[in-house]
Amino acid sequence: MILSLQHELNKLAFAVLRPVLGGPNPAITPPTGASTGAGVGIDGQVVATAIPMLGADLSAATLVLVGLAAAIGFVRGVRREAITLMVAAAASLIVGWMWPAVASLVNRLWRMFHFAVIERGILAENPMAAWGEAQASAPLLPLGGDAAAWQIGFFVFGLLILGYGATRYVAAPPPKARGIRGFSVLLERVVGAMVGALTGILVSRFVLPRLVPNAQVALLGPGTSLYDRLAPYAPTTILGIVLLLILFGVTGIGGGKPRQKMYQ
């Protein structure tokens, strides 16, 4: 079921992204004669047999996701977006690198649930047999490489609930709601957009390679047309970003005595 779900997700991603992106990166397009994902049926019609997504350049999709996250960051302000960024980083570490441990834990909980609820636990006619049934039940989450759809689900769910949902209650509201006006508002929003863009990069690097295996997921990978166009402006952009971050940091330093003791 999971494999077919992943296959459907891949098909959906390919169907949506391919028209947007144009085509696969010519540098890594399979050579002529290699499988292009299509075959000829007995009636002469072209029949799709596999998904030709190897080496697809998803830098444009990455850019869209980053832009979206930056826009969200602009609206929410840096105080909330900083927490969201940390949640996204933690989620990509836990769900990505530590997936076997997460899946193993969830599978154990699933067996306990299976025993206690489905097999009725110690109220069953034969609890030992019920425990055996629960032990023999198929694991809920795959431990290996077929877990992409589950990983995306966990990541997105965690990010939405903890990163974007919970921050509404634990972090300071956007600047306008705090009664702040003027340049400080704009500055906080712009820096929020930058931090949001970082979250977008994390999200796209986690989600897109799992949707489209072997895809190129680089915001500005060398060789892409976007990279060639923007490269001359990189120093100015980097300097501008650094200036804005410093300016925001300095405006964030409040007046009066330091909250934490500053050793000279």
Binding site: G249, I253, G254, G255, R259
Partner: peptide, 13 residues
Amino acid sequence: GKWPPNAVTGLVF
């Protein structure tokens, strides 16, 4: 001056 503006933002900066 006073720092951090809040714990998480301060840590990030």
